[in-house]
Design a protein around this nucleic acid. Structure first.
Length: 928
RNA sequence: GCCCGGAUGGCGGAAUUGGUAGACGCGCUGGUCUCAAAAACCAGUUCCUUCGGGAGUGCCGGUUCGAUCCCGGCUCCGGGUACCA
């Protein structure tokens, strides 16, 4: 039989589907292994050549784990809610569900063509009511829980209410926005609405007026991680700050646990570092400053309590709630003008004008609690409303931003830290502030002469003793804004009574997405769901009109895969206790500060309430690199329709034009295809070199406009899925970002055909024999077993492909067609090239899938050498090799080498200073 | 600015990190087969060379018998992040 990839691949893909070869069920006799890919958003463009990279790697790993005796869970699904389908709906009126369904179908076809070992019976889609029922259910649980800082976990809100009824909130330590203390009596006296408002400050899912990132172009708010460089991640539209009533998740309650959990997981260090920075823990102190003439206190956060004596002014964020109250009449106009200006400035403007120093004096003064000094209170937008308390004490001598501000507005600068052994110099002469935490305190009351670190501690103690401050930890992480003013997302299971939100009863779930006439906001500016008829409960209470954000559905999908059909529960205890967590998670690192933090939070909450059995959901995580495009260019001579080949282009004035990579082969342009491409090139002329038109090339993003998109379907049609899979892996290390280059796939295709010819001769006759393999053949096989196992375990898929090539080359040279060897090779390669492996396995006489075979055992004895070819180097330079027995002693080796003619030649008339013999490594002779 | 990566032939990359630099593949050169081409196969391919050798893993220096690997100082490229107090 001739190797016909299309025939073989269709046959086995059909077989796998019909026999449910990759179906996974709980099996307590085997250890479990859960391999997960980040599920895709099914976009209309389908898969390009970059998408399957991670899926191929995880598939190889899954198949390998099956061969080594694991019960593997390897599911796939779709992150089906998303903006593109909704934007398309707005333009065309097509319901996003229809677009999504169509895209999923196309994705599935493409995925199936690559031969993945997914258990499709476990497919989940975030937009499926059977799935989002549990997203809604989890939201209700978040609404019904609060975070107890004493026990460090989420607890039911009923218990909080009980405590309020007995003691009020004075003994409660919670993650809360509630600052006022009330008694049980006061609690009792509250109306239901007041009680609900109060509880809202404790709930893990809560409604509040929040400063949000508003994107008017998209008509919705965005989470912090959805805003990049001041514009929306999707579409690049401008984003502004706006105060809106929004649902949020109190993820900040989990800041410390999210940080600590990173120590327990096996992820790339760079990714962990990104999460650490995003969580942004900083230790310091909260300090109360009295406002002169008012009873209000201003609370500031500082990481340098030791520099309190150097605070010469204070700065509030323009949005700070006390600004209006404390501004003196003479400063009112200026301050109001500034606040208005700051508010209307877009995020992007604010970020690009960081260097420009702006601010206004409020006319008010704060009183430094440690020395009673009066310090002016300013407002400036370098202080952010969203971080710390939105107010700072400014220590210009020891903070570069405060220093710049003080210089600009001519405010006093007092030095309080001096570097050890140096005399203090008048700060007026400084070029920059002294920000280092190394040094000795001066001019600082009782902490003078202390070391900085000692002074910090002493100051915090002092603040706490005198109740003018406290030691504290601040996090950069913000609560996750959870409302979106869009149609295509999960409806909130929430209704409103007297303006207060209440959760639906769980029996009402799923609350299905209603039909609307248009996918746009209403005339009154309400979200699209407000257009739905009868969008209210049975009792007539109005339902929430916002929908959940994209990360809602993706935060717990990996748990649902464990038990996707469950009608009564998110997932059963039994399923979760068996599958537990993801042993290997593969995906792009663009999710570092979004999905991967939200999902950890989601899982941690489910752990707290007793559902999930592991705190951390993703034990090991690998980021695959992005595949970039490799664009090709032609060079048109200015003012002509003549194109000059790459290496001759310097002789002319040319313009560089993208040529479609699909009619360029090894940078050689198919001139006819190019002429047919566009009418304006019909009569193009070409100046060739060596009879060819050579194109220039560059690595760019893969995109339609750059004509560098390579479609996997065409490659698979031409070379087959097995070749495609091997080639994607052969491209380079999995985690590297790398350009796609179709040049080279031929080499892998040649390899596959060469593999086939170990089993069939050129006339297609089966030539496998039952002969006993010889030592050489066994050595090749066992070297390969060892290398493949090793390489897969360390995710070095590219070098494994090389080893397969070496193995097949050597077996071909040895003319080895022996069943004992080839059978093992078939199993080895089955995780990389499953179709051809399945065909060969079948022809070797097996009637079950190679999936259920056992990974060949490596036997040291077959690769053992009794001699080693020592490289002999002189002063570190390798000159010749000499074969010696491995068990020869160092002394003996030295003696033998020194006797060699060649050794004498290279020594010449020089002196031998030293001879180094490293057994089974090297011999180095030092001469000179 | 700060924090992470990275730099090896014409190209993708290897060297499981002190021990033979350039595995494997692409491309290129020559050859076999063929009327010819394709395919397939064989040989060669880091650079320079006066054919003795010499140089060589971004650059400069150090440690070592020996450095792609360790240390110090740069340059360039990629990514993340940014008035975070």
């Amino acid at each position: 039989m001739e190797y016909n990839h299309n025939e073989i691949e269709n046959k086995w893909q059909k077989y796998w589907a019909e026999n449910k070869t990759y179906k996974s069920v709980i099996d307590h006799t085997k250890p479990k292994f859960y391999v997960l890919d980040m599920f895709p958003y099914p976009s209309g463009a389908g898969l390009h050549v970059g998408h399957p990279l991670g899926y191929i790697a995880s598939d190889i790993y899954s198949r390998y784990k099956r061969l080594t005796g694991f019960n593997v869970l390897h599911p796939m699904g779709y992150d089906a809610y998303g903006l593109p389908a909704e934007q398309y709906a707005i333009q065309t009126g097509t319901h996003p569900a229809i677009t999504t369904e169509k895209n999923i179908k196309r994705y599935r076809e493409q995925l199936d063509r690559i031969g993945f070992s997914f258990d499709w019976d476990r497919e989940v889609r975030t937009s499926d009511p059977n799935y989002y029922k549990w997203t809604q259910w989890t939201f209700i649980q978040l609404f019904k829980h609060w975070y107890n800082n004493k026990t460090d976990k989420a607890e039911p809100i009923e218990e909080l209410i009980k405590e309020f009824e007995i003691n009020g909130n004075k003994n409660i330590e919670a993650a809360t926005s509630q600052e006022e203390i009330f008694t049980a009596k006061q609690w009792d006296a509250m109306t239901e609405k007041e009680q609900q408002e109060n509880l809202m400050n404790y709930r893990l899912a809560y409604l509040s007026d929040t400063w949000v990132n508003w994107c008017s172009e998209l008509g919705t708010v965005l989470a912090n991680d959805e805003v990049v460089n001041g514009v929306s991640e999707r579409g690049g539209h401008p984003v502004e700050r706006k105060l809106m009533k929004q649902w949020s998740l109190r993820i900040t309650a989990y800041s410390q646990r999210l940080l600590d959990g990173l120590e327990k997981v096996d992820w790339f260090e760079s990714l962990k570092e990104m999460q650490r920075n995003w969580i942004g823990r900083s230790e310091g102190a909260g300090v109360y400053f009295k406002v002169d003439g008012y009873k209000e206190n201003l609370l500031v956060f500082t990481t340098r309590p030791d520099t309190l004596w150097g605070a010469t002014f204070m700065v509030l964020a323009p949005e700070h709630e006390l600004v209006e109250q404390i501004t003196t009449p003479d400063r009112k106009d200026a301050v109001e003008k500034y606040v208005k200006w700051a508010k209307n400035r877009s995020e992007r403007e604010r970020m690009s004008e960081v260097k420009t120093i702006t601010g206004e004096f409020t006319g008010a003064y704060g009183i430094n609690p440690v020395n009673g000094e009066k310090v002016p209170i300013w407002i400036a937008d370098y202080v952010l409303a969203g971080y710390g308390t939105g107010a700072i004490m400014a220590v210009p001598a020891h903070d570069s931003r405060d220093f710049a501000f003080a210089r600009h507005f001519e405010l006093p600068i007092i030095q309080v830290v001096t570097s050890e052994g140096e005399e203090p110099v008048d700060p007026e002469t400084w070029d920059e502030s002294y920000d280092s935490k190394e040094g000795i305190m001066i001019n600082s009351g009782f902490i003078t002469e202390m070391e900085v670190k000692e002074a910090m501690k002493a100051t915090i103690d002092y603040l706490e003793e005198n109740t003018i401050g406290y030691g504290t930890v601040n996090f950069r992480l913000r609560d996750a804004i959870f409302s979106r003013q869009r149609y295509w997302g999960e409806p909130f299971p929430i209704y409103y009574k007297d303006g207060m939100p209440y959760p639906l009863d769980e029996s009402e779930l799923p609350l299905k997405l209603p039909k609307v006439d248009k996918y746009l906001p209403t005339e009154k500016g309400e979200p699209p769901l407000a257009r739905a008829e009868n969008w209210k409960t049975k009792e007539g209470y109005p339902l929430e009109t916002n929908t959940m954000p994209g990360f809602a559905g993706s935060s717990g999908y990996y748990l649902r895969y464990m038990d996707p059909g469950n009608k009564d529960e998110y997932f059963s205890k039994e399923a979760n206790e068996y599958w537990r967590d993801i042993d290997l998670y593969l995906g792009g690192d663009e999710h570092a500060t979004g999905h991967l933090i939200y999902a950890r939070f989601w899982n941690m909450f489910l752990y707290d309430i007793g559902l999930a059995s592991e705190v951390e959901p993703f034990k090991k995580l690998i980021n695959q690199g992005k595949i970039q495009g490799r664009s090709n260019f032609v060079y048109r001579i200015d003012g002509t329709n003549k194109f000059v080949s790459f290496n001759l282009r310097k002789e002319y004035k040319t313009a560089r034009i993208h040529a479609d990579v699909n009619f360029v082969d090894n940078d050689v342009l198919d001139v006819e295809a190019f002429r047919d491409w566009r009418p304006e090139f019909k009569d193009a002329e070409f100046i060739l070199e060596d009879g060819k038109y050579i194109c220039g090339w560059e690595v760019e993003k893969m995109s339609k406009s750059k004509h560098n998109v390579v479609n996997p379907d065409e490659l698979m049609e031409q070379y087959g899925a097995d070749t495609f899979r091997l080639y994607e892996m052969f491209l380079g290390p999995l985690e590297n970002h790398k350009p796609w280059d179709t040049n080279g796939i031929e080499g892998v295709y040649r390899f596959i055909k060469k593999l086939w010819r170990l089993f069939f001769d050129e006339n297609g006759n089966w030539i496998v024999t039952d002969e006993i393999p010889n030592d050489q053949e066994l050595k090749v096989l066992h070297q390969t077993i060892k290398k493949i196992r090793n390489d897969i375990e360390r995710f070095s898929f590219n070098t494994a492909v090389s080893q397969f090539m070496i193995c097949v080359n050597e077996l071909t040279d040895l003319k080895c067609h022996k069943k004992q060897v080839l059978e093992n090779l078939t199993i080895l390669i089955s995780s990389y090239a499953p179709h051809i492996a399945e065909e060969l396995w079948n022809r070797l006489g097996h009637n079950t899938s190679v999936t259920y075979a056992a990974f060949p055992e490596f036997k040291e004895e077959y690769v053992k050498e009794n001699s080693f070819e020592y490289p002999v180097s002189f002063n570190g330079k390798m000159r010749f090799k000499i074969k010696l027995p491995v068990d020869m002693s160092k002394e003996e080796v030295e003696k033998r080498v020194m006797k060699e003619e060649k050794t004498k030649k290279y020594i010449g008339d020089k002196q031998v200073r030293k001879v180094i013999v490293v057994p089974k490594r090297i011999i180095n002779i030092v001469i000179g």
